[in-house]
Computed example of a mutant assay.
Amino acid sequence: MDLAPLTGEPLALDLVNTRPATGDLLATPDDLRAWLGLQADRLPEARELAAELTAADLAAVHAVREHTAQAVEHVRRGAPPSATALESLNQAQRAAPAINELAWNGTSITAVRRRAGGGGARLAAWLAEAAAELLADPAVSKIRQCEADDCVMLFLPAHPRRRWCSAARCGNRVRVARHYQRHRPA
């Protein structure tokens, strides 16, 4: 199975999907830096945060990922998430409060959303905020798990007939296996 991170789902699902059926795509701070590079266009301060990551920061991201995965699993099945998961995501957001930082660009005032605190706390807060947005969205109940036998990836289908996390990855494997079953020698 291809272990390159999938991207393109809501940020919180992309984070949860860094835990495939085998291995961990965020096993080291370098893995986290690489993943942040893939998410840089939608994760504020990603490049700045990547430069200063430590093992403790990775642990904070892992905690957000685990609590997000647990909450998503419950909510998508219509069950209430644990109070612990929700409180942990709230604490991660509180650890690095967000502000709209005002600046003068020479002609007008600009506002850029920033978080206070250390790099790991800021990263965990951004990811916890993405989890909060996903969990509060009514679409969370539409999240599906990939139908490929050996895949645990989650996705939010844009089309109701979507069955796989990636048509190129799992969809191809399933179609090739079906073809082989139909055409194998007797």
Rank of each mutant, 00 (worst) to 15 (best):
136 A>D: 09
99 I>W: 13
127 L>H: 02
97 P>F: 10
72 V>G: 02
143 I>N: 04
29 P>I: 00
94 R>Y: 11
152 V>S: 13
108 S>P: 04
157 P>L: 12
47 R>T: 15
5 P>L: 12
163 R>Q: 14
44 P>E: 03
16 V>Q: 04
59 A>T: 01
147 E>Q: 15
129 E>P: 02
19 R>M: 13
153 M>F: 15
65 R>M: 06
167 A>P: 07
136 A>Y: 04
77 R>F: 10
109 I>N: 06
3 L>Q: 15
75 V>L: 14
11 L>N: 01
116 A>K: 07
141 S>N: 04
104 W>M: 11
85 A>Y: 10
41 D>L: 10
130 A>G: 02
51 A>E: 15
105 N>G: 03
93 Q>C: 14
138 P>W: 11
76 R>V: 07
53 L>S: 02
164 W>D: 01
118 G>W: 04
34 A>S: 08
46 A>N: 12
98 A>M: 14
149 D>R: 15
56 A>Q: 11
130 A>W: 01
44 P>N: 08
13 L>I: 03
34 A>N: 05
74 H>S: 14
118 G>R: 11
27 A>M: 00
57 D>Q: 01
124 A>G: 01
157 P>D: 05
93 Q>V: 15
101 E>M: 13
54 T>H: 02
158 A>C: 05
27 A>G: 06
12 A>M: 08
172 N>G: 15
13 L>Y: 00
51 A>Y: 01
5 P>G: 05
159 H>V: 14
112 V>D: 05
48 E>P: 05
158 A>M: 07
81 P>E: 12
148 A>M: 09
163 R>Y: 10
54 T>K: 05
121 A>N: 01
84 T>M: 06
4 A>Y: 14
181 Q>T: 06
109 I>M: 12
12 A>P: 00
117 G>P: 03
142 K>E: 14
60 A>P: 00
69 A>M: 04
82 S>I: 06
115 R>Q: 02
159 H>N: 13
61 V>H: 04
97 P>R: 10
56 A>S: 09
29 P>V: 02
136 A>E: 09
51 A>K: 09
100 N>K: 11
158 A>V: 08
47 R>F: 13
154 L>R: 06
79 A>P: 05
168 A>Y: 12
57 D>T: 00
39 Q>V: 06
74 H>P: 07
11 L>R: 07
23 G>M: 09
60 A>Q: 11
68 T>S: 13
126 W>C: 02
129 E>Q: 10
126 W>L: 04
79 A>N: 13
47 R>S: 15
87 E>H: 14
19 R>Y: 07
91 Q>K: 14
55 A>F: 11
71 A>S: 10
114 R>I: 02
134 L>K: 02
75 V>M: 15
147 E>K: 11
15 L>W: 03
113 R>T: 05
177 A>W: 06
